[in-house]
Amino acid sequence: MVKEVERAGIPVVHICTVTPISITVGANRIVPAIAIPHPLGNPKVSMEEEKEIRIKIVETSLDALTTPVDGQTIFEVKY
């Protein structure tokens, strides 16, 4: 799906946990997530802390969308 969205002319960022799969699939802008069943959350911490994590991942994704890339790039989230 990532490839088809990009092929249609819309820049796309892929948020996922197992980034090697994203590389294999062919995403160009990749942001690592927390875990497979809760990519943008962490039920082990409080709801407030969890939201902070989610904000950081989304902010990193927006940074990825505004950064020129030359080939497949993983944007690490700074917690």
């Binding site: 969205v5 796309v12 948020i15 990519p39 943008l40 989304v58």
Partner: peptide, 10 residues
């Protein structure tokens, strides 16, 4: 008129 997509996977 969407300018960008955030695609999430589990």
């Amino acid at each position: 008129g969407v300018d960008a997509v955030i695609l999430t996977s589990t």
